[in-house]
């Protein structure tokens, strides 16, 4: 009995000493920016391509500027002050990004929740296309602030099925299963895919 208890105690001590609770993660910032050029070989798709949200960070003026770009047409949505809260977040920016996503689903042709589609519709379907946001920052802006801006853009989320029905449909319930009875529920993904503009 005593050696057994010793073994348990040693195991617990080892696990507690080697346990790491501060796990690291990654935040995606793709360099793949979709081109505005239309390919001749590509078949003509739906009537309209989704607009791209440009988030410009001006460190000198301490401002964020949000712009929609559809093709060559650019329109400003809002210019807001660069104000952090006590936790270091940019709450105004988060709010405006959420608003931009919600209001952009119709006029800017953004993809919203998409929890049920059939294989036959797959070619025309926009579910696999992610809404695009591109971040532009000033050269002296510190990296920690860049990450905060990217984090704010990832704030609004949507539900998407990446495989057709009947493999995937419906939003996940509390246990993570499909609420509509499919084997797989829609994924909860960020509403925008962020690309970091290096230029």
């Amino acid at each position: 009995m005593v050696p057994f208890i010793d073994l348990l105690m040693v195991t617990i001590s080892f696990l507690l000493i080697t346990a790491v609770w501060s796990s690291m993660a990654r935040i995606n910032a793709s360099a793949q920016v979709p081109s505005n050029k239309k390919s001749d070989t590509e078949p003509k798709k739906k009537d309209k391509e989704p607009a791209v949200l440009h988030v410009r960070v001006s460190d000198k003026e301490k401002k964020f500027i949000l712009q929609w770009q559809a093709g060559t047409k650019t329109e400003d949505i809002i210019s807001l002050e660069m104000e952090q809260d006590a936790t270091g977040k940019y709450p105004k920016l988060e709010e405006e990004i959420k608003k931009a996503y919600v209001s952009g689903q119709g006029p800017q042709n953004l993809s919203g929740d998409d929890v049920s589609w059939l294989q036959a519709e797959a070619d025309d379907h926009g579910a696999n296309k992610l809404n695009q946001a591109i971040i532009h920052v000033d050269n002296a802006f510190p990296f920690s602030e860049v990450v905060k801006v990217i984090d704010a853009i990832y704030m609004p989320r949507r539900f998407v099925c990446f495989v057709p029905k009947p493999q995937c449909c419906g939003k996940p319930d509390k246990s993570g299963k499909s609420a509509d009875g499919c084997p797989q529920a829609a994924d909860d993904v960020p509403a925008f895919n962020v690309a970091f503009s290096a230029n």
Binding site: M24, A25, R26, I27, A29, A31, Q32, L130, V189, V194
Partner: peptide
């Protein structure tokens, strides 16, 4: 396909793929 290494903070919503990985 570039990512930045960060510390996970507070209530995150870690996703396995997401983003460009699913494109």
């Amino acid at each position: 396909n570039i990512s930045f290494l960060v510390n996970k903070k507070g209530k995150g919503q870690p996703t396995e793929g997401g983003g460009a990985a699913k494109e």
